[in-house]
Every structure is written in C-alpha cells, then in structure tokens.
C-alpha cells in the first residue's frame, strides 16, 4: 500500500489585517497584521500575537468577588498605583483604564475628573494606555473628548466610539492623535459602516481598531465568537478593506459580573479558580476567533493566557 504523505488542505488568503501601532511611537506595541486565520501558522503569518491589556478602574470597585479583589487589594482606590502594579508586578504589556465612575446611571462623576485621572495614569505609565468610557453615548462624547484633550501627546487608545457619538469623539481623537476604538453591537455590517463613517470623518486607518462587543462565557459569547470569525473571514478572504482592522475585546468586565463567578456551591469547585478559568477560557475562545487585544483582569488568568498564546504561536519555553 502506498500513498503520498498527507498535507493539510490550505486556504488562499487574499487580504490582511492592518498593523496598528498603539501608544507613543518610541514604545509602541504593534497589533494586528494577521495574514491567516488565528494560529493557522501552517499556511500563513499571524503577524503580531494577541496582546493582553490589564484593566484598571477609576473608582474602587464595590461589587467584585473576593478572588478578583485580592490581587489588587492594596491599590483598588488608586488607579495610578493599580496601573503601575499591573506593569511592575504582573508584567502588563498595556493597561486599560475603565472610566466607570462617569456612568450617568451610576456615580455620574464629571468628565473633567475622569480626564484628570486618565492624564495621571498616562503620565505614570511607560506602556500604551487604553481608556474606556462608560458606554453611555452622550456622556462618553463629553468624557472622551476631554480625555483626548487632557492627554495630548500620550497616544491613547480611546473608546467605545459608537455610531451615535463618533463625530464628537472622532474629531478630538484626530486632533490630538489618539487611536479610536470603533464599537458596534455584534454585527458585521454595522462594524463596517462605522469604520467607513470614521474614515469619512478623517480618522486615518492607522488610528483605528474595532470593538465587536463582547458577551461573556454563557452570556452571549457565541455571538461575539461568530461575528469575529465572520469579520476575519471578510478581512482575509473577501478583501473587505473596511474590516481589516485589529479587534479589541473588553472581556473581563463581562465575565466577572455574572452570577456564576460568585456562587458558593461545592459542585462548582473553588470560586477563585472558577472565576479565573471563566475569564481565561473566554479569552482563549476570543483569541481563537480573531482577537488582537484582550482586556483582562485577574493576574492568574493573564498568566495562563499569556502562556497559552506563546505556545500557540510556537514561542513557548
């Protein structure tokens, strides 16, 4: 019996994800540049591996389960110290400042205060900083505009920029040279349309990344997963130029808010490990679907996913 040695049937890619530099040019972190499906290294180049940004909150989180609070217990009320701990102790490659205090349905703190916090964190950091608003269309327009202004020269990555506030945030982002995160609700066509609108507004391609909107594990992850696979397919095999942008997934806040990270039930094992795995598994599935930036919380989940990514990229020790 004889046959030729088996070779994997490969796919011909006709497009590529753009490579975007995040942060100040002298210490930029490059994301994107994929020329094949995620980790399909036998038939293409993945460009940059998915990067992890560790998140920091602008106000002490009151409702986090103990496992999520514990690693940051000494810095929860100080976003600058928290950000530094992420970098110095946990080796964060990037930091994401979550401006939850500005939420009009919550503390509704003024935009100026948030902008000042962003500036202080940016000043203290040597790694790229993402700044994430509350998601409220009107408030974010004001908050992120002021953040852009206060952080001139810091080359932030700001979002979520939505179809209802893209002009108000896009314009100052262009003016002060920050990258924008175009955010749409789990929909390929809306994502493409917002990218076109931002382009028409004058946002250059090198200042644009996308947020597909993340559903956590058990809470809509499958929708995000498939929409990301479809976006990647369009970018790589259908030459859809307006979808060839890196994908940023703000996942930790979705994972850690669900009841399953809090339940105390022997059948569900150790609550801390459960939360860490729910975060890490969500991150892994999003990376498999095409994530370029994973915004994560727990240092142990970060460590696990970092090791996982290195192994998938073939650079593991």
């Amino acid at each position: 019996m004889s046959w030729l040695a088996f070779t994997i049937p490969t796919i011909t890619y006709t497009g590529k994800v753009k490579e975007i530099s995040l942060g100040p040019p002298e210490r930029a972190v490059k994301v994107g540049n994929a020329g094949c499906y995620p980790f399909h290294l036998f038939e293409g180049e993945m460009g940059n591996p998915p990067r992890i940004a560790m998140e920091v909150y602008d106000v002490t989180p009151e409702d986090w389960p103990p496992a999520a609070r514990e690693p940051f217990a000494d810095v929860l009320s100080d976003p600058v110290a928290w950000a530094k701990k992420c970098v110095d102790v946990y080796g964060a490659e990037m930091v994401c400042l979550q401006l939850v205090s500005t939420d009009p349905n919550g503390l509704n703190r003024p935009a100026g205060e948030a902008a000042a916090t962003a500036r202080r964190v940016a000043d203290a950091l040597t790694v790229p900083l993402l700044v994430w608003g509350s998601g409220d269309v009107e408030k974010d327009a004001e908050v992120l505009r002021q953040v852009c202004e206060a952080c001139e020269g810091k080359h932030l990555v700001v979002g979520p920029v939505q179809d209802k506030n893209y002009k108000k945030i896009g314009a100052p982002a262009i003016g002060y040279r920050h990258t924008v995160i175009a955010s749409t609700p789990i929909d390929v066509n809306l994502a493409k349309q917002l990218n076109i609108l931002l382009g028409n507004l004058g946002v250059p391609d090198e200042l644009l990344v996308m947020d597909p909107t993340v559903g956590g594990l058990g809470y809509g992850l499958e929708y995000t997963y498939s929409v990301m696979e479809r976006m990647r397919m369009a970018a790589l095999t259908q030459q859809d130029d307006r979808l060839q942008f890196p994908l940023v997934c703000n996942l930790a806040k979705e994972v850690w808010k669900v009841k399953e990270v809090r339940l105390d039930d022997p059948k569900l094992g150790d609550p801390g490990k459960r939360g860490i795995l729910m975060e890490a598994i969500t991150a892994v599935l999003l990376a498999l679907a095409g994530a370029d930036v994973l915004i994560m919380r727990h240092p142990e989940a970060v460590r696990l996913v970092r090791g996982y990514l290195a192994e998938m990229m073939g650079v593991a020790a």
Binding site: G218, E222, Y225, S226, K267, L268, K273, L277, L285
Partner: peptide
C-alpha cells in the same frame, strides 16, 4: 473533573454548539 474547570468548559461547549 473539578467543578471550577468542568463548569466553564460545559458552558463553553453550550455556547459553541448552540445553533446560530
């Protein structure tokens, strides 16, 4: 099998195998 890993895996499976 440990609850803290099995449960997230079962939920991941439920998500992935849901009929879109």
């Amino acid at each position: 099998l440990e609850g803290h890993s099995l449960f997230p895996l079962l939920v991941a499976r439920l998500n992935i195998f849901t009929d879109p």
